[in-house]
Amino acid sequence: MTFRAAIIGLGVGEQHARTFAQHPDSEVTWLYDLEMAKAEHLAEELGQGKPAESYEQILAAPDVDIVSIATYDHLHFDEVCRALDHGKHIFVEKPLCRTASEVDEISDRWIKAGKPHIRSNLVLRGAAVYVWLKQAIAAGEFGDIYAFDGDYLYGRLEKITEGWRKDVPDYSVMEGGGVHIIDLMLWLMGETPNSVACTGTNIATRDTGFRYDDFMASTFSFASGAVGRITANFGCVHPHHHVIRVFGTKATFIYDDQGPRLFRDRRDGATAEALDLAPLPDGKGILIPGFIQAIRNGDDPTREAEREFDLIRVLAAADKAHADGAPQNIRPTTYTSSNDKTGQQP
């Protein structure tokens, strides 16, 4: 069976379209962007897809199995809900939505829709070094994980001071960027934190049109006793980058400007083992083949969907802790299957 995909938003969505068009089990049937010329040009280049005049036209079309959403963050909730109401599988840029009430609504509609496949495009899951790290943790090479540190260094200040993000009500840099690091933490550690504290500052952007904190720092507590510390730093004087440190009782993983490496020895003078593995994925479409395969194989979508829902609940709790100036408890999804502690690539 060939799965028919409609792509909504042709910025990052152009990479979605190219991946669906090139995959042997899918084809692009519709393309939609606020700039019609983008859809027309891409349809001609791909030799697939018809430019749509509206999202409504796509949802009403009979030749759509998958809706791939790459619009502005604050539009995702409504677009995901409407796609669910039409029984579509959904591939969506991060974040899936922005609040606890929104994810509850999406969860309810997902169940009513018969549990179609739904996946956010959190591409660090597909980077070779993190696939290896997931497998190594699952194999016990790190012993017990007791801390995860991550920094999302955005470095593209003009995108929040001049672009669309400054006009989004209650824009959160943790949701807009830190989401990648939080998702990686949840995936690697195989558990959801039970509480979070968060603070932030707007020093880097206080004299600009951006009205919210450009730096947020969250501390997460896990039932296992582990601690996670994650920052979303949009105002930094630094090229776009991320930093990850995973501390276990047997080994420590570090990725920063010096590349990914591993310490297995805590003695003075110990040297790190360099890891010749890519810390970034090969493009924004890297998770799409696995998404298509899951649909084709008839895999149970529950575990992946509920992982997406858990991520938003964690993010929403961090945002509330930031807004209220007080720690927040996190309500996890009750999974119908066991937590994913395997080393399988998502």
Rank of each mutant, 00 (worst) to 15 (best):
M1G: 15
R4W: 04
G9N: 06
L10Y: 10
Q22N: 10
S26I: 09
S26G: 10
V28W: 01
T29R: 04
M36D: 12
M36R: 13
A52K: 09
E53C: 09
I58C: 06
L59E: 04
V67L: 07
I69L: 06
A70D: 11
A70N: 14
T71R: 03
H74M: 12
F77V: 03
L84D: 05
D85K: 10
K88Y: 00
E93V: 10
K94G: 07
S101H: 08
D108Y: 02
W110P: 00
I111K: 01
L124E: 08
L133W: 00
I145N: 07
Y146E: 11
Y146A: 11
F148H: 13
D149A: 07
V168D: 01
E175N: 14
G177S: 10
G178H: 08
V179T: 15
I182C: 12
D183K: 07
T199E: 10
N202V: 00
I203R: 03
A204T: 08
R206N: 12
T208H: 04
T208K: 04
M216E: 11
A217Q: 14
F222E: 09
G228I: 07
G228F: 02
R229I: 15
I230P: 05
A232W: 01
F234S: 14
G235V: 10
C236D: 12
C236S: 13
P239M: 12
I244Y: 01
R245Y: 05
F253S: 02
Q258C: 03
D268R: 10
E273R: 15
L280T: 12
K284M: 14
G285Q: 08
D299N: 04
F309E: 07
A316C: 13
A317N: 01
A321G: 03
H322E: 07
A323F: 03
D324W: 00
G325H: 02
R331G: 00
R331H: 02
T333C: 08
T333P: 00
T336P: 00
N339M: 05
Q344N: 13
